[in-house]
């Protein structure tokens, strides 16, 4: 019987572009197609699969600039500012992370993407406006080069049930 890991491995390289893509995946797993639908829905409801859909290549579509913005906030302000940033359409990821003062005082990270440098800078300025005086210091780290980028995959070494 195919495990959840088998199922994810069979799907993660991508659904085939044919009229019945799930039937093809199910055949590879040697399970019934309806069983595959049921188990995919189950993995979505448990959160193992966050979503199913196309994964766009931002860079190719024109989003050439990405900035990691980092913010030093008082502990009591992090949740409120994080939730505020998390609601902005300009922000694609927003996380709280640990600090290492004095060299790394930033506890909130927000990723901002844009087609031009100006667009990114405008988005960053609007975040600065939102956070106001709660931010003690902030930096913007532009990406110079993508050195490696692969979708998060289950690989052959991870045999435990996802």
């Amino acid at each position: 019987m195919a495990t959840d890991s088998d199922l994810i491995r069979a799907m993660q390289a991508g659904l085939p572009l044919c009229p019945e893509p799930y039937a093809e995946i199910a055949a590879r797993l040697d399970i019934d197609e309806l069983e595959l639908h049921r188990r995919v829905n189950q993995l979505m409801s448990t959160g193992t699969i966050r979503r199913i859909g196309l994964v766009p290549n931002h860079y190719k579509i024109g989003y050439r600039f990405n900035a990691m913005t980092v913010w030093a906030l008082n502990d009591e302000d992090v949740d409120e500012v994080g939730e505020l940033f998390g609601r902005q359409t300009s922000v694609s990821h927003c996380y709280k992370r640990p600090t290492y003062p004095p060299s790394w005082p930033y506890n909130l990270f927000a990723m901002v993407h844009g087609r031009t440098l100006d667009e990114v800078n405008q988005k960053v300025e609007s975040l600065k406006g939102l956070v106001g005086e709660r931010c003690k210091s902030t930096e913007v780290l532009f990406s110079e080069k993508i050195l490696k980028k692969t979708g998060l995959r289950l690989n052959s070494g991870r045999t435990e049930n996802a």
Partner: peptide, 24 residues
């Protein structure tokens, strides 16, 4: 259309996006 968008590299793939925290 999906085939053309894939061939032009605008789509990396169509498939599941996994939850990091459950994978390790």
């Amino acid at each position: 259309r999906f085939r053309r968008l894939s061939n032009e590299g605008l789509i990396s793939r169509i498939g599941p996006v996994l939850n990091h925290s459950l994978l390790g």
